[in-house]
Amino acid sequence: MSESEKPVSLKDTIRLCALVFAAVVCATGLMIYTSFLPHYGWTAKVSIILAIATVNAFLVAGYLMHLLSEKKLVYTVLGFTVFFVIGLAGLTICATNGFPPGTVSH
């Protein structure tokens, strides 16, 4: 309920924003740096970079979208959504990689 929400202060919000922005800049920098590292294969790089991107996304969703203090109903909806996205991607990949050997050309 609105009464239970903390009153908004512009100053605090600006401070929060500055922190988030700084963190996002650092994370982005780190991603770019990782991608130019010469001694890793693409698999390793992709994993690290995606991990950092997830942190980035967490910052934006958690703080800018106030997802860290959302209502249970929103969590429920998003929980199912994320589950289904993972199902879609995961099962599709399993199914396309799961062909018996010798039945696909490459």
Partner: peptide, 10 residues
């Protein structure tokens, strides 16, 4: 489509 046994079982 000839998917593998495991995933078909699922």
């Amino acid at each position: 489509t000839g998917m593998g046994q495991k995933i078909a079982t699922f």
